[in-house]
Design a protein around this nucleic acid. Structure first.
Lengths: 244, 244
DNA sequence: CGTAATCTTGAGTCACGTCAATTAACGTGG
DNA sequence: CCACGTTAATTGACGTGACTCAAGATTACG
């Protein structure tokens, strides 16, 4: 495993989609002193591909920050189906809980490195440092806005558009996108993708096939795409649900 | 306008769906002293039905807490379609912003009373009171979980199930549900409902019609339902997308 | 009382889910 | 290195839930 060198909570994930400089990247940049204090209570955890970080229903004693890799956040519904709520990347946080219990499960989709913060000690730290406290509040607000974007996507886009949104997000991750060769590697199964997009593996495949026919992408293998028309993916999003 | 008497941030909205006592109701109960300090910087705002509280793109100088009424939170997408992100009720907060700009619009669906907090003064207050700060962090985390529940709903339930979820939520609001007569008043149009559920007005109507045929509800008028089988609505949610 | 908005219902079409079968990728042990 | 089993990916056929378009019915409001 070869991790890119990264400082603690390095630069929180920015989304160039909505502007050159994301708010989060600025607001959540912690002072070296704050980073040191966090590092003090944090322990480093390495997880291999497929490894469980925490499970729905477990006691939630920690929150995590991603240093390297990609993590899948999911939850099972009353009907037993799994929904993938989000994928998180370096700079993101995970481990929100409810009454001391994790409400979601987190699993590594690639070799991942995480900072693990005991909730008890973090609470003390937050009480002592209002600025740090504010950073965490801003972070939660950011995560809420991300969730709202997903509500927009799931509420009004068709599967092709949702898939395009996902691809455009993943392209922002240097660890998975080679911008020279325009090659995007998908570190997940069609099932994961389907559960994220709120559809079925078959439909994901069909949509990929159609995008290939239209010359937007090429499937070099099941898990490796060549992105031929990045701009078309963006334009896709501006259309109505029925193509209009 | 006749408002039920309520203290400031009275008891934050609890969701009996997921347990007798919601975490929020407990965690976010502010001390009388904290309430007083917040009331100090808050001003009371009354909004009539249909009134705009703030608009997407406006400068975000305030955050709001609902004292009475029902408010619709929505956003327009690149394709121009409107998505209703949430409905908020007494005890809820609204006004999350991004780089000083509101990302959503808020409009009153009924006569509403709001506490308006200047963001600048609130920031100072939070710096001085770690406990209050923690309450706001907990609130943001709660709102995130609410958003995640909506992701689950939109990702894997059919329209009937999504509608059932909405009705079950609204039944929790005493201001709109008469639990003696089992009458639920809908303070919104079919368009609002459709944009909330990620569907069309026509489909909403058809689903309501089917629920009436099945004896689950009765339409006393377009905006007034009799809930005949509250339990059936709950059971609906446990089925698969295709009825299984 | 008239005009506009909202709501309702119907007919036709399409996107997507389901079921089923084939092919490809991957790991394991001989 | 290859035979084999297992899982993932793909493709086809088919049914259906939900969207679109269009026409009434009802309600709200000046």
């Amino acid at each position: 495993m070869n991790y890119p060198e990264q400082r603690f909570l390095p630069e929180l994930r920015g989304h160039s989609i909505e502007g050159a400089q994301s708010e989060t990247r600025i607001m959540n940049l912690l002072s070296p002193e704050q980073q040191a204090r966090l590092a003090n209570i944090a322990s480093l955890v390495d997880v291999r591909t497929g490894g469980l970080i925490f499970g729905e229903g477990n006691r939630a004693d920690f929150i995590y920050a991603v240093a390297a890799g990609m993590v899948r956040i999911s939850r099972c519904s009353a009907s037993g189906r799994r929904q993938v709520l989000d994928f998180v990347f370096p700079g993101d946080m995970l481990g929100y809980h409810e009454r001391g219990i994790y409400v979601n499960s987190a699993r590594a989709l690639s070799p991942a490195r995480l900072y693990r913060l005991p909730w008890s000690k973090l609470g003390t730290l937050l009480q002592q440092d209002p600025e740090l406290h504010a950073s965490f509040l801003a972070r939660a607000a950011f995560d809420l806005r991300q969730a709202q974007k997903r509500i927009m996507t799931l509420g009004q886009q068709n599967v092709a558009q949702r898939l395009a949104s996902f691809l455009l997000n993943l392209v922002e991750q240097p660890q998975f996108y080679d911008s020279q060769l325009h090659q995007l590697s998908l570190p997940l199964t069609r099932f994961d993708l389907a559960d994220y997009l709120g559809t079925t593996p078959e439909t994901v495949v069909r949509v990929l096939a159609r995008l290939e026919q239209e010359g937007v992408i090429r499937r070099l293998s099941a898990r490796l795409l060549e992105i031929r028309r990045l701009d078309w993916l963006s334009t896709l999003l501006e259309a109505g649900r029925r193509g209009g």
